[in-house]
Simulated scan of single mutants.
Amino acid sequence: MSGASANNTRWAYTLFSSLVIGFILLPLVFIVWMSFFSNKILSFPPQGYTLDWYTRAWEMSDFRNGFFLSFRTSMIATLVALVLGLPASFALVRGRFAGRDLVNTLLMSPMVVPAIVGGSAIFVFFLEIEFLTGIQVAGSSLGLIMAHSLIALPWMIRLVTTSMISVNPSIEEAASSLGAGPLTIFFRITLPVIKPGVIAGSLFAFVNSFIDLEKSIFLVGPNSTTLQIALINYLEWNFDSTIGAVATVQISLITLLLLITDRYVKLSRAF
Rank of each mutant, 00 (worst) to 15 (best):
M1R: 14
S2E: 15
T9I: 08
Y13T: 12
T14C: 06
V20I: 08
L26A: 10
P27C: 00
S38Q: 15
N39E: 09
F44S: 05
P46A: 03
P46N: 05
G48R: 13
L51E: 08
L51G: 07
T55W: 15
R56W: 12
S70N: 10
S70G: 12
R72V: 11
R72P: 01
T73M: 15
L82M: 13
G85H: 05
A88H: 03
A91Q: 04
L92K: 00
L92A: 00
F97R: 08
G99P: 00
L102G: 01
L106A: 04
V112D: 02
F125L: 10
L132P: 02
G134E: 03
A138G: 02
G139A: 10
S141T: 14
M146T: 04
A147W: 09
H148N: 06
P154C: 01
L159S: 07
T162R: 01
M164H: 02
E173D: 11
L178Q: 06
P182A: 07
P182G: 06
I185Y: 03
I189N: 12
T190P: 00
V198Q: 02
A200Y: 09
G201A: 01
S202A: 14
F204L: 13
V207F: 12
V207R: 11
N208G: 05
N208Q: 12
N208K: 09
I211V: 11
K215G: 00
K215D: 05
I217H: 10
N223Y: 14
L235A: 14
N238W: 14
N238D: 14
S241G: 09
V246H: 07
Q250G: 12
S252K: 14
V265L: 08
K266E: 03
L267C: 03
S268T: 09
R269P: 01
R269T: 10
